[in-house]
Structures are given as C-alpha cells and as structure tokens.
C-alpha cells in the first residue's frame, strides 16, 4: 500500500518536473529566437563608415554627435536630414576626452572625424540640436545614407540625469 503511494507520488513529481521543464524550455526558446529576430548591432560612426557594404542589411544602432548646421527639415514630407560625427564607443575613451559633453563637443568641432548622413521621417524631435547625442536604429542604404527608424536624443550638458531614457524616444 505504502509503496503504491510513493510510486504515485513520484510519478506525480515526474509530471510536474516535466511540465516545469517544458515551460522553462519555452521561455528559453522565446528569449533565444526573439534575440535573433531583433538583435541590433551597436556600431560607432567610424565602424559604419569602415565596414560599409558588410553591414548593409543588418539592423544597426549607432550613436554620434549632431552637427547643428546640417539639420534640414522638409515640412511637407516630414523628412529630416542631418549629419552626425563620430564619438568613441568606449566609456573609457569618452572619459578620457573629459566626459560625454566634452566628447560630443570635440566630435562636432573636429572636421577630421568621420561623418554620416542621416535621414529620418517623422516629427522634428524636441531635443535635436547642435552637439546633442543622437542614438539611432535603422539600416545603412546603398547610397551610404543611414535611414533611421528610431531616433533618440540627449543633451548631456544641461540637466542632471533625471529624465528617464524614454523621454528622448521619438517614433
């Protein structure tokens, strides 16, 4: 009698273990497949310019310093174009240049840095201005222009970090 109970208990336990394992497997599957489906590669402007053709059909996420006098906006088509200059991708390098604000300033004023033309369609973001940091996701076109689907902006000099990142999201 006792044996059958424990047997029943252990087969029950098996059921739960299998059930739990299935769920864990499902979660892992969701994570892995979704990661593959929506991975975006972080690149600096230097890397984009250097790699060129190799990254044509990949989702990229890039960051650069906005050059104020290149900003052009077509009100009819809501098409926004501007150029960004290379800022280092590594924190230590940014710190070495004296922090993000300094690094952005250096990038925007140094004509020897590599630059990239950006086109984005949508309302003009509130924070788009000279020496703002632009973080964009999108793809590089055959024409060497980066077509951004998403544009985030931040101006590091002005405020203490009190703004959740979402503030700068413009879609």
């Amino acid at each position: 009698m006792e044996e059958t109970i424990t047997q029943k208990g252990s087969s029950n336990r098996m059921k739960f273990i299998v059930g739990g394992a299935l769920i864990v497997a499902a979660v892992i599957y969701l994570i892995v497949s979704s990661t593959q489906a929506s991975a975006q590669y972080f690149l600096t402007i230097d890397e984009v310019v250097a790699k060129g053709d190799q990254v044509l059909d990949r989702d990229l996420r890039i960051s650069g310093a906005v050059l104020g006098d290149t900003i052009a906006y077509d009100r009819e088509s809501l098409s926004l174009s501007f150029k960004v200059a290379h800022v280092p991708g590594d924190n230590d390098e940014i710190e070495a240049e004296g922090g993000l604000a300094e690094a952005l300033h250096a990038a925007a004023t140094d004509p020897s840095r590599s630059r990239l033309q950006i086109i984005y369609e949508g309302p003009m973001p509130d924070l788009l201005q000279d020496e703002a940091q632009a973080i964009m996701t999108g793809r590089l076109g055959d024409d060497g222009i980066f077509y951004a689907d998403e544009l985030l902006l931040k101006c590091p000099t002005k405020y203490e970090e009190a703004v959740p990142e979402q503030v700068e999201v413009q879609q």
Binding site: A26, L30, I31, S33, S34, T35, A37, S38, A39, Q40, Y41, F42, R61, G89, T137, E150
Partner: peptide, 16 residues
C-alpha cells in the same frame, strides 16, 4: 561586438 535588443524583442518574447 556589442549587440542590443529593442522593443520588438520584449514584445515578441513576453507576448505569449
């Protein structure tokens, strides 16, 4: 290589 995931990742994985 730094690779990031955006909102589609969360939506796709968390939806089910």
């Amino acid at each position: 290589q730094k690779v990031t995931v955006g909102p589609p990742f969360y939506e796709r994985a968390n939806g089910p």
